[in-house]
Write a protein that binds this DNA or RNA. Structure first.
Lengths: 340, 340
DNA sequence: CTGAAAGCGCTTACAG
DNA sequence: CTGAAAGCGCTTACAG
């Protein structure tokens, strides 16, 4: 059996056209810099040999890979998938490809991605994982490759970051609930020390205060899971004087809460209003549908990609941080209502 | 401002260690082939310079990129995200990275991915898109790079494919429903000419026949959307003699059907049993929870990646197709019951 | 506008 | 076991 034919190289095209490889390269990269006759000769040879230039070789020489690493904690998480869509749209529009860096809780994989960056396999990195990846004793951010963080805010770093203003959004939720006439509130928190939770918590508290509510709101400790929302509900059910408005730090917990109190005959929103955060797909389908804060996932991805593109184009040095916050409007659905 | 320092090269390490670049390269790739003293000298220099080898250059020379292109129709589709998880697990275990090829209905992007493959930027391709990508008049499968199709079966090609046995699965659904005592059946189809739909349809018909049902089942035309399931429901509601068991070609339609008939007071499963296909996440949460055929998404991805790995290792020529079918068990939930 | 030649940073026969 | 040298397939100053 014959060995697979070697792919045609630029030298083959040059030989066939009777020109130098330099001319072929120029014709393909900057046609306008080549005379029309040359151009025609070369293009004919390209067609005849159905030549495709070897991008790996081109990358080596021109010192760029046209590839961006996107680091995600879990590739199967639909939230990130939607952000990825926005990233892909922007990046592919500029000719960049995406390498997926799926952490999947593996330190080995994380170290591998750090190597990828240090070894010059990518031109830039988008971080959706809430921390700067590290491995073998070094952090990815010292590799002299531009990084941009998205969605999951990373504290104590100077990277450009793209996200929403969690505090302002939570504040608006508070205003909204007060506007409905509620007087007793509770917050279901995320995991201790989670920065997003801190921001949402603070925003909610400030919002209530600003609206003239002096009594501090109740807190149920959660961890972003459906389970912990359900747990908060069982606590809620034991209270003599129950809050009438619940704000959960994310939708999963809001829905866990909602489903659990319903089983005990509590009506939503008649007896209690529930508001979530994120606007995951399911919040549109559950019963009642969930009032929540909409995160513009695709737009967040696109904005981050745009920012990274700018950094990658800024040859001199890695561009100065210019973090960016997008609007996150509250979406009113059927889980919240005027206090009955 | 100083220019960013150039990354250290293998030559720097070699100079520092006082050996040839060949020895450094060998020490890193095959330590056992180098004498212990040499090895120690080299490793010390590697540590001292914190050298990371330039993978792009290594790739060029060794003619492999350790990268696999995964072509998906839509990266934000949770079904594919889960398949991707299985792919990533297997591929990263063997040191391969993933480039995402998100089609997003763009012919330009599709052509770009074809170029990527022809230009040797990836060592293999996984196709989740139900067709062989093409662009500029050429098909991806003639590029002499191994391809494997997953989930979305591609008819009329000789590629290795990994999927489930749709026909057998649908047949089991029929058996199950007959076993519950049902006598009148309907099928909500996918889009015309869709191959998965054809297989599920045929399997359902065969299963009924095999179980002794002679009356042919009703058909509602659908297109895999929630909408079309709802449409089927409105048709269903107009019937004098309604079927008591519905099999939808996917979960979205099953749920669209279910939600719509419920609004007209029809009880599921008391009045009608509903079975879907795929086992999407929502089928566990809707009310009632949906009986459906479980697709082992992550396992499908892993199996396909395994197969591709074999093909990529088979140096001589692209390995012979060895398609593979995984089990797709039916999951009984609350949308189906013994006929009342 | 075009070509000869160097070089991107590695790996790998080939000698020894 | 080690090194000198060629070469992977391009691009890009540098001349002309």
């Amino acid at each position: 059996m014959a060995l697979p034919p070697r792919a045609t190289r630029i030298a083959d095209v040059a030989a066939l056209a009777g020109v130098s490889t330099a001319t072929v390269s120029r014709t393909l990269a900057n046609p306008e810099v080549v005379s029309p006759q040359m151009r025609e000769k070369v293009m004919a040879a390209v067609r005849q040999t159905s030549y495709t230039r070897n991008i790996v070789a081109a990358n080596l020489r021109s010192r760029q890979t046209m590839l961006v690493l996107v680091v995600v904690p879990d590739i199967a998480n639909p939230f990130f998938a939607e952000v990825l869509r926005g990233i892909d749209k922007t990046l592919s529009g500029s000719g960049y490809g995406i390498i997926i860096g799926n952490l999947a809780n593996s330190a080995a994989k994380e170290a591998h991605f750090v190597d990828l960056v240090f070894s010059g396999q990518v031109d830039g990195v988008l971080l959706l994982c809430g921390h700067v990846p590290q491995g073998k004793g070094r952090q990815m951010d010292v590799a002299n490759v531009p990084l941009v963080a998205v969605c999951e805010f990373i504290p104590h770093v100077t990277l450009p970051q793209v996200g929403i203003d969690n505090q302002a959004a939570a504040q608006r939720v508070a205003q909204y609930l007060v506007g409905l006439g509620h007087k007793r509130f509770a917050y279901i928190s995320g995991p201790a020390s989670n920065i997003l939770d801190k921001q949402r918590d603070a925003g909610f508290g400030n919002g209530l205060k600003a609206a003239g509510i002096r009594k501090p709101h109740l807190r149920f400790e959660g961890d972003f899971t459906f389970q912990s929302g359900a747990l908060a509900a069982t606590e809620f059910l034991t209270l003599k004087q129950r809050p009438t408005a619940i704000f959960a730090a994310n939708d999963e917990m809001a829905i866990g809460f909602l489903k659990t109190v319903q089983k005990s005959g509590v009506k939503v929103p008649r007896d209690v209003s529930v508001v979530g955060f994120d606007d995951i797909e399911y919040s549109e389908y559950c019963e009642p549908t969930l009032t929540t804060v909409h995160q513009p996932r695709s737009a967040l991805g696109a904005a981050a990609a745009r920012l990274l593109l700018d950094c990658m184009q800024g040859h001199e040095e890695i561009a100065k941080p210019r973090s960016q916050y997008l609007e996150a409007p509250m979406v009113e659905r059927l889980s919240s209502a005027v206090i009955g």
